[in-house]
């Protein structure tokens, strides 16, 4: 959390913790692979498979940022930067999807 922690390494999760996070990442990857065989699109709603895969990916990304990149112990400024970068990523998705969601509407059709 503080600069002191950054210098001394106190507060970090240590090797067992890092291996634990790594195991979670590997498990997430395997889970993503097997979940792609479930027909969530048919049973829940179209795009559910993709949504689940993205949710797992987002969870894995959060683990990497918090623990491997030490954001969890970093000053608020770093937190702000991390959140801002996610906001920026959201811009890319939002505007791209604005194309996909409205493409089938044609030209000023009702």
């Amino acid at each position: 959390m503080s600069d002191k922690h950054m210098e001394t390494g106190e507060g970090h999760i240590g090797y067992p913790g890092y291996f634990g996070v790594f195991a979670i990442l590997v498990f997430g990857t395997i889970f993503t692979y097997f979940s792609s065989f479930w027909d969530l699109d048919g049973t829940l709603f179209p795009g559910a498979n993709t949504l689940l895969a993205l949710a797992i990916a987002f969870f894995k990304m959060t683990c990497v940022m918090l623990f491997f990149m030490h954001v969890y112990w970093s000053p608020r400024m770093i937190w702000l930067s991390a959140v801002a970068s996610l906001f920026w990523l959201a811009i890319m998705f939002a505007y791209t999807m604005s194309d996909y969601f409205t493409r089938s509407l044609g030209v000023f059709s009702v």
Binding site: Y95, S98, D99, R103
Partner: peptide, 22 residues
């Protein structure tokens, strides 16, 4: 600068509504 990229794609098949925003 990050919000205008779609103006390179007006005739690419991009949605006309997205094009208006861009």
């Amino acid at each position: 600068g990050f919000l205008v990229w779609g103006h390179h794609m007006f005739v690419s098949g991009q949605s006309i509504y997205a094009g208006m925003v861009f």
